[in-house]
């Protein structure tokens, strides 16, 4: 996670910057005494979380938020002014409002709240993207063929290739199981064995350490049995 701290007071920058270093989730902390410098930085680099002062000369914290209204970041406002909280929470990106001098307990709560929101947002975006991309293109004899996820029964490792079994045929594709796994919808597919990924929707039966899918018996790895059960709608 990349963070930025914007405050015209160097003491505040040092304090907040120092506190940020306590969180392993934060990869980089970038300090700015002017919001304009941060905007320039954000034109080149993705920033996930911003600690923002409000009262700054020429261009204040609210000017900053208005300018970057559609940007994809969360903000924690840190100010000596108690009176601006209502205005602050009108901005969707504002997670929390902290009054200086910083109370370490409330700072920690605010940061953890921001982490949780950023995580959820990233997960949602990822899922939405995958739902929109409900298919995969595979390269067969220099032709790109579209296969909908729904059509796939299972994928089996086959040396340097994988066999993708669909309703009508089996496609042999030059890929690893790991590589294809990252392109699939995690909620729909499950790696039940080191050589097999199955479409959960098409599982017909499970008995001991095997499952039945499209009349084929597929082994279930010992270590993943419980995980598989968690993914199924069990009575």
């Amino acid at each position: 996670m990349n963070c930025a701290v914007i405050d015209d007071e160097i003491t505040s920058l040092e304090i907040i910057g120092g506190l940020c270093k306590r969180y392993i989730e934060i990869n980089s902390v970038n300090l700015f005494s002017s919001p304009i410098d941060c905007i320039k930085f954000m034109n080149k680099t993705q920033v996930d979380l911003i600690f923002l002062d409000i009262h700054m000369p020429n261009f204040n914290g609210f000017d900053f938020l208005e300018t970057l209204n559609n940007n994809n970041f969360k903000a924690i406002l840190i100010t000596s002014d108690k009176s601006l909280a209502i205005k602050a929470f009108k901005f969707d990106c504002v997670v929390d409002y902290i009054v200086k001098p910083i109370d370490l307990y409330y700072f920690d709560l605010a940061v953890k709240k921001a982490f949780s929101l950023i995580k959820t947002q990233n997960l949602l975006e990822d899922t939405n993207k995958k739902i929109l991309d409900n298919h995969i293109f595979i390269n067969i004899n220099k032709r790109l063929i579209k296969i909908n996820f729904d059509e796939i029964f299972l994928i089996k490792a086959n040396g340097d290739y994988v066999n993708i079994l669909t309703r009508n045929k089996t496609h042999v594709v030059h890929s690893s199981l790991k590589s294809i796994e990252s392109k699939l919808l995690q909620d729909l597919f499950f790696k039940c064995h080191r050589s097999y990924i199955v479409n959960l929707k098409h599982i017909e039966e499970i008995e001991e350490n095997n499952l039945l899918i499209n009349k084929q018996i597929i082994p279930i790895g010992k270590g993943v049995r419980q995980k598989l059960f968690q993914k199924l709608n069990l009575l």
């Binding site: 007071e9 160097i10 003491t11 040092e14 304090i15 120092g18 506190l19 370490l104």
Partner: peptide, 24 residues
């Protein structure tokens, strides 16, 4: 007290904070 709590016995951080505060 605030700086002591904040620096968590990190002498270097404590010194940087006090120096910055004095200067500013």
């Amino acid at each position: 007290n605030f700086f002591l709590k904040l620096s968590n016995e990190d002498q270097q951080f404590m010194m940087r904070l006090t120096n910055t505060l004095k200067m500013e």
